[in-house]
Computed example of a mutant assay.
Amino acid sequence: MGGQCENQNPNSIPCPVTSTEQIPFNSEATPLVATPVTAPTIKIPVVLAEPTLQIVVESDITLNPAATEIKRVKKNVFLNQVKLVPVSFARIANTDFFTVTRAKLFVAGHIRKNLEYASAACNGALQDRIADIPFSGFTDLTFPQTPGGPTPIFGISEFAEANFLNEKTQMDARLDKVFFQNLVKYNEQPFGELVAANFFELDFSPVMASPESTFSTLREKIVLELTVKVLQVQQVRLGAGSNVITPSLFGLTPPTSP
């Protein structure tokens, strides 16, 4: 059973193939009931920034067996880190939530390079060499990226402690009696997505090879323009003039407007 036969020859008849006829199903539209909502609040990934980073790398790739000619090069990018580290904040109204106004974006990954080349063998098969070229670095981001655009949002946790006097002497502390308050806010972690990679590359042998001679080292200089998205899941209220929604979670010492 299947599409293969043994001991075929050019004059043999086609192999029989078992098939199953598909039975058509009836289909009709499912009735839908719409419930009007004036301004619903939804929780969605919000695009905070979409920067294009210029990454410059140089490396040497060893070829074994040696090459006489480069035939084709194919490249892809793999990211293992897109992390946002905030360094500047602005308070949201009279709350203890903050928007990020400036941050460092750390990016790391590697370029996977698939290299096909011809060797010195007469009528030899094409050789294949796969190399991973790592890169890492950071860039500065300011928010919002456009006027009125979205920004990362973080709630700051609070820890408070109250101590007591010795009620008998009123002269020293009660070391065995303490009041604690601890408000922890759990924030959505900003994350990254790979959008596009544009490669500009120069490959050459460090020692120039004459025609039909071989070279065993390939030096590459790559300029990679890498585009990524930086996102954070946020609550957004839809409607005219959509708003980002944050809760009011005051601790014992609520903030005051300046």
Rank of each mutant, 00 (worst) to 15 (best):
Q4W: 03
Q4Y: 09
N7S: 15
P10S: 11
P10L: 04
N11W: 07
N11K: 12
S12K: 15
T18G: 02
T20E: 13
I23C: 06
P24K: 03
P24R: 04
N26I: 06
A29K: 13
A29T: 11
T30D: 02
L32S: 05
V33Q: 14
A34T: 08
T35C: 03
P36D: 06
I42C: 03
I42L: 12
K43R: 15
I44E: 12
V47N: 11
A49Q: 00
A49K: 01
A49F: 02
P51D: 10
L53Q: 10
L53M: 13
Q54F: 03
I55W: 10
V56A: 09
E58F: 01
S59A: 15
T62N: 05
L63I: 06
N64A: 07
P65G: 05
P65S: 09
P65Q: 06
P65F: 09
I70H: 01
N76S: 14
V77C: 08
F78N: 12
N80C: 09
V82L: 00
L84D: 01
V85N: 04
V85Q: 06
V87Q: 07
A90L: 10
A90D: 10
A93W: 01
N94M: 13
F98K: 04
F98I: 09
F98M: 07
V100S: 06
T101P: 01
K104G: 03
K104N: 13
L105F: 02
V107P: 00
A108W: 02
G109V: 05
H110Q: 12
E116M: 01
S119N: 08
A121T: 12
A121P: 00
I130G: 01
F135Q: 04
G137F: 14
F138S: 15
D140W: 08
D140V: 11
P150K: 10
P150V: 08
T151Y: 00
P152H: 11
I153L: 06
F154A: 03
G155R: 06
S157V: 04
S157W: 12
S157G: 15
E158D: 14
E158G: 03
F159V: 08
E161G: 01
F164N: 08
F164D: 07
E167I: 14
Q170W: 13
M171S: 15
M171T: 13
R174T: 07
L175I: 08
D176V: 02
F179I: 05
F180T: 15
Y186S: 05
N187Q: 03
G192V: 05
G192T: 06
E193V: 07
L194D: 06
V195C: 12
A197G: 08
A197T: 11
F199K: 07
F200E: 10
L202C: 12
L202N: 14
S205Q: 02
M208T: 13
A209R: 04
S210Q: 10
E212W: 01
T217Y: 02
R219D: 00
E220H: 02
E225W: 02
L226Y: 10
T227K: 15
V228C: 02
K229R: 15
V230P: 03
Q232M: 08
R237P: 02
V244A: 05
V244R: 00
I245D: 04
S248I: 14
L249R: 01
F250T: 04
G251V: 10
T253Q: 10
T256D: 07
